[in-house]
Amino acid sequence: MNPNKALWEKGDFTRIAASMRESGDELVEKLGIKKGMKVLDLGCGDGTTAVPEAKRGADVLGVDIARNLVEAGNKRAREMGLANLKFEEGDATDLKPLKDKSFDLVVSIFGAMFAPKPFDVAKEMVRVTKPGGKIVMGNWIPNDPTLVAQILKISGAYTPPPPEGFVSPMLWGVETNVVERFVQAGVKKENVSCVRDTFRFKNSRPPSAFVDDFKTYYGPTMNAFEAAEQSGRSVELKKELDKLFESQNTSPAKSETSIAATYLRVTVNVG
C-alpha cells in the first residue's frame, strides 16, 4: 500500500477536522467563490474547505488518498443536500483521470503538502487549472513556534528517521521552495505569492483531552506514540504534547481549547 494512503487511513482524521471547521469556512470566504465555479479541493479530508466551497455555489470535486475520508466526505455532502459536491479517491502526484485545464480554482489546505514528489504535485495542480485560474495552498511552516509545526517536530523526535530520499512535507512552507516548484511547472515567478495566515483549532474539551484525539486519531501522532511505546517513552511524549497544547491554549474557559497555528497561504495565478 502507498505509505501515504496507510498514514491517512490510520485512525480517523475526521475527529481532528471537526476542530478545524470554523477556520476552514473563514479561509474559503477569502477565495472569492462564485456560483458555478469549478473547484478541485485536493487532499480534502472529509471536506473542511470543500463543504463551504460548495455551500457558496461552486461545483466542487474533493480528491483525497484516504478511502475512509472520501466516504466520510460523501456522507457529509449527502446529509447537507449538496448535490454540487462529490468526493473521490486520488493521488495528488498523479491526477490522471482529471482533464487538462478543467478547474477555475484548485485548493489544497494542509493536504497536497503531505504527498511525496512535490514537483509532480505542483505540475499536476497547474495542469488541471484553466488559464486565468488560480491555485491556493495552505502549508504548515517548518520550525514555526505554533501548534502543528511543533506537534510534528515533537513527534519526529520519537519516530525512526525517514527513508533515504524522503522530502519533508514541511518544505512546502518555505516560500523559495514553493516558487521553485511552480516555476518548474511552467508558472511565472511573479504569479506566485505567499502570505502568513492563521488557522485556529477549536475543541470543546481541555487541551490534554484534545491531545488524546491526536494520539488516537491522527496518523503521524499515532505513529509517534507507537514508536515511543516500544522505547518506553510514551508517557514522556504525552507530557511534551500536553505542555505544548496547554501553553498555546488561548480559550478563556480552561475547560475548552482554542489554539492558533500559523501557516503559509500560497496563491498561484495560472496564465
Results as ranks from 00 to 15, higher is better:
G24S: 01
G138V: 03
R78D: 13
A17K: 00
S168R: 04
K239S: 14
P163K: 13
K238H: 09
P52Y: 03
A261T: 15
P116F: 01
G138H: 03
P145N: 04
N143E: 15
F201E: 06
K153C: 01
A122E: 04
F110C: 11
S247E: 12
T216W: 03
N74E: 07
P142F: 07
D120H: 13
N191P: 00
V187D: 00
Q248P: 13
V270N: 01
V70Q: 07
S208N: 12
L241H: 05
T49M: 04
A54D: 02
F182Y: 14
R67N: 10
M137A: 11
Y158I: 02
L147N: 13
P160Y: 06
E9M: 03
I33Q: 08
K96R: 15
D64R: 09
A92E: 06
A83R: 14
K130I: 08
F166A: 12
K99Q: 14
N249Y: 04
D213Y: 10
K238E: 13
R15A: 10
N223Q: 15
V136G: 12
E164G: 10
R78P: 00
K101D: 08
V266D: 01
S155I: 02
Y218D: 03
P207V: 08
F214W: 14
N74F: 02
T48D: 11
N223H: 08
L69N: 12
S102I: 04
V126G: 12
V179D: 10
C44F: 06
L105C: 04
N68G: 03
F201A: 14
F103R: 10
T159Q: 12
V174L: 15
T176Q: 09
R76M: 05
T198K: 13
A50H: 07
T159P: 00
F166N: 03
E29F: 01
P97T: 07
T221D: 02
K101G: 10
K38L: 04
P142L: 06
A260Q: 09
A115Y: 04
V60S: 10
S251H: 15
F210P: 03
N191T: 00
N269S: 12
P252E: 13
R21Q: 13
Q248Y: 11
T93V: 08
G232N: 07
V174T: 14
Q150R: 15
T262Q: 15
S231P: 08
T221E: 04
F166R: 00
P163E: 09
F13V: 05
S155H: 00
P161Q: 05
A17N: 09
N2W: 03
M20P: 00
E29D: 13
D59W: 08
P52G: 02
V60G: 10
G45V: 06
E175K: 15
K55D: 04
D64Y: 05
D242T: 06
E26Q: 13
L98D: 02
S231V: 11
V192R: 05
A72T: 07
K55N: 07
D64P: 10
T176H: 06
T14P: 01
P169G: 05
E124K: 11
R76K: 15
D91S: 14
T49D: 00
S155P: 00
K238W: 02
K215E: 11
N4L: 12
T14W: 02
G219C: 05
P145Y: 01
